[in-house]
Design a protein around this nucleic acid. Sequence first.
DNA 1: CGAAAAATTGAGAAAGGTCAACGGCTGTGG
DNA 2: CCACAGCCGTTGACCTTTCTCAATTTTTCG
Lengths: 226, 226
Amino acid sequence: MYVTLISSTDAHEGPLFTPEKPPARPNLGCARFLPAGANLFREGDEAQFLYEVRSGVLRLTRVLENGKRQVISFGYPGDFVGFPDGDDYHTDCDVIASAELIAYRRSALESGLGDDLTRRRLLDAALREISGMQDHFMMLARKSAIEKVASFLSVLAERIGLRTGAVTTLDLSMRRTDIADFLGLTTETVSRTLTHLRKKGVISIENAHTIVIRDRSALADAAEME
Amino acid sequence: MYVTLISSTDAHEGPLFTPEKPPARPNLGCARFLPAGANLFREGDEAQFLYEVRSGVLRLTRVLENGKRQVISFGYPGDFVGFPDGDDYHTDCDVIASAELIAYRRSALESGLGDDLTRRRLLDAALREISGMQDHFMMLARKSAIEKVASFLSVLAERIGLRTGAVTTLDLSMRRTDIADFLGLTTETVSRTLTHLRKKGVISIENAHTIVIRDRSALADAAEME
DNA sequence: CGAAAAATTGAGAAAGGTCAACGGCTGTGG
DNA sequence: CCACAGCCGTTGACCTTTCTCAATTTTTCG
């Protein structure tokens, strides 16, 4: 189960949840189930494990002493979370939608003990993380509120949206505050922007957490995607 | 020389330039000298090498098709640049101040051929990169213009500033445009903010590229540092 | 020394933040 | 099962910050 998933080359494109056969090497990683609202680790905790998300959604946040909060990323199936800085985690990690995780002992991965394939996958995940963060920079620094929200919805739709005919349904597990803190906006602006997109017919809002994308290309235009 | 530098555990805290003894394993990395203005690689180029900065300053940029530019980071001595995304570079890299680099063949680092120490250092550099980028997120998303500029100067002063008595002299090798594109501001705002700090007596501006920090704690306050 | 590029400064405009009020969903206890 | 409390999301009015456009000064480099 774990090994099969581990060997997938591009986890970012992977399916949301694919049950697999039992692990060939169960000692490498072990499964954990966590309910929404649970805390996985906090900034400054000793980073004993690195986690791979199997299902559910995680949220990585960082807080300034003045209370300002930044959501660094959301962890979806296929993502790795818990890259340490030195020996410690450098973000908080909380469960947004109840999740199944695979925990890897850092020591096993980093020392010569871990197998080459897993180590290679760890490095790949770290490099992909860097690349993804660079995209996020453009978002934070150089996009307007509409572009930010549209980008966010586009990327998420690509990743976890359910296509039904011409339409894509998107389950936003996170709150408006989380989206705002991810995009560097306020909840009010996120809300206003969603309303704006709704009034333009690009999306419709079934309920606060379910968004239907009616016009993908209009959304992509609004996002000024690469 | 190269190997000794390679084995330093925390290059981010290291001295600017420390001459060392000749390499014990010269085939691992080889030196390159590049003048200011040179291009090291472009987004999309095949990532054959990973570079370690020995001296000088590099600039990593990303450009949106609409022309908007984001400076992802500046590469100072001790930094690694050129982490690939898949097989390609995902940023442009240009030389801002003439630089000496050490080029490592990616293939040697990533395959089982590279030695454990070097691979470990590569992973460490990648993890440190991730951590540094997370700090940059707070900067881009949650700080005002003054906080951004003050943070930028503070961090740079810590890293490459020359202390002379109570005062720290800082050589900004980059243009205002580069600073602006790094901080997610316009050149005008960067300029106005520097003037503001100058009028408050926190800094003085010897010339456009030489800044003297007169009041470190006032600068740190303005930066709202962690 | 002079032309071109970079930096500074100013005035006005726009985007987004702040503050405040309201609406709607959820979960709990009577 | 209903009423109500509390949180979340939405909307509106206003204000602050930063951007934009333009003019001027300074620096760089041939």
